[in-house]
Computed example of a mutant assay.
Amino acid sequence: MADREWDESDVRIRPNKRGSRPRTKDRPSHDDAVTGRVITVDRGRYTTIVAEDTQDERTVIAARARELRRTPVVAGDFVALVGDVTGRPDTLARLVRVQDRATVLRRSADDDDPIERVVVANADQLVIVVAAANPEPRTGFIDRALVAAYDAGIEPLLLVTKADLKDPAPLLATYELLPLTVVVSRTAEEAPEAEASEDIGAEVPELEGVEPGAPEAEGAGPTPHSVKLDDDAVARLREELDGRVTVLLGHSGVGKSTMVNALTGASRATGGVNAVTGRGRHTSSSALALRLDGAPPGSWIIDTPGIRSFGLAHVDPDRILHAFPDLEQGTEDCARGCRHDSSAVECGLDAWVADGHAGPQGPARLASLRRLLGANPREEAHDAKELGTL
């Protein structure tokens, strides 16, 4: 043995447990895939509408392909589906591609959270829903939603509900100089004995794609009163929504689901407001796209869960100013490089507001703008880079 000559044939190589053939990076093109519109997402299952507005229209439930596991898929997305796309009960298609989006509404959890969260895709219009009272309206939230809408290229609309509880005029005066469509809605409580079966707070039927027992299916339970909305306000809002994809955004308890029920004939669960915290109770756990009742093709409304915060970490500070058209013109007299925030020296916005060009609400509007600019972490990152700390 000592005199034996060794060569490469004596080397023993252990076989690869995953196989000797390397996996190809080429993926199938799925040219035979059908297109579907995602209407809701629930625990890894995507409910889609295929062959929309045709005789062959059907609902198809799909699971996301492995290669898309890092790609967010949200209500409003158009996706490519393969496999069993018949829509028959107990069938499951495979979602293999997300088509290019016309618009994307994003938010971050907080202003210092760098992770963007896609809210909805392909929306034409954003309805910002606030209540005149119970819960009290927050102009900071409205301003943030306006920034997100303008940044996404989505037309905003302000819907003020519960105007029977409090005069919304002071709130609306804040935005009177903006090219912003406003709809005001009032509610009137009715006794539930009359038509309990039609109560919008009654038992919620199972939603397709939502398993029984899920938060979305259970909702918040029956409400003690049915709610009748102002017919004129509903009709006025309908005029703005027909033929468009609209997303409703607002805090819990402001009446989003109530308005959705009135517009679509659905039975979305509705909830009240906590008397101690003044916050609404969550009754929707995921975004859901619904057709407008009797509307032209392409008319969809997307009800989103009530949100606690709407961060703008993803929005460049230079674009935040575009959401304040009543102030933007005042920056023409600013020195070059002025950031218009609370630390700015001789900012043209101060003189613009002092001269009354932004109206009586100018000081409040300027303070709101500067709060948003001061909260945006990209400003801080820019300063840190200039100082050489990053």
Rank of each mutant, 00 (worst) to 15 (best):
A65Y: 04
T86R: 05
V119H: 07
A102E: 13
G153A: 02
I154E: 02
E57S: 06
T40Y: 07
D151F: 14
D56Q: 12
I142R: 00
E67S: 15
H30D: 15
Q125H: 01
R64V: 14
D124E: 01
R107H: 10
I39W: 09
I39P: 06
V41F: 05
S29H: 06
L126A: 03
R106M: 06
D113A: 10
D164F: 08
P114S: 07
A80I: 04
P135W: 01
D151M: 09
R138Q: 14
E57Q: 15
A93Y: 11
L105V: 02
I61A: 11
D143R: 00
L95A: 14
G44T: 05
K166H: 11
E155T: 05
I154V: 04
T161R: 08
D110F: 05
E116I: 08
D164T: 04
D151N: 15
V127P: 00
R101A: 10
D113H: 04
V85K: 09
A149K: 02
G44C: 07
P137A: 01
A145F: 07
G44M: 07
D151I: 11
T86F: 06
D26Q: 12
T161G: 12
V38S: 05
R70Y: 09
D77A: 11
V127M: 08
A80L: 12
Q99P: 03
T59K: 09
R106L: 09
R64P: 03
V120E: 02
T161L: 09
G153I: 01
Q55W: 04
V96N: 14
P89K: 08
V120P: 01
Y46K: 07
V96K: 15
T161F: 07
G44K: 12
R70W: 07
P135R: 00
P137W: 00
A163E: 07
G76I: 10
I128V: 14
V118K: 03
D124T: 00
L68Q: 09
A132C: 08
R45P: 01
R69L: 03
L126K: 03
R64S: 13
I39A: 08
T35E: 14
D77E: 06
T86S: 14
R94L: 15
Y46T: 08
G140F: 02
T161S: 13
G44R: 12
D113E: 11
R138D: 12
A51F: 09
G140C: 02
G87H: 04
V119C: 05
D26N: 09
R94F: 14
R27N: 08
A51V: 03
K162N: 13
E52R: 12
A102F: 03
R27P: 01
T71I: 10
V130R: 02
V82T: 15
R101S: 08
D32V: 10
D26W: 10
G36E: 03
L105K: 05
G83I: 15
A152G: 00
L81N: 13
I142W: 01
R97N: 15
D56K: 12
Y46I: 10
R37E: 10
I61H: 11
E155V: 06
I115H: 10
T161K: 07
D84G: 10
V50N: 00
T35Y: 02
A148P: 00
L81V: 14
K166E: 11
R94G: 13
L92C: 13
R43P: 00
V104Y: 02
A163R: 06
L165M: 14
V129E: 00
Y150K: 05
V98F: 08
V73W: 06
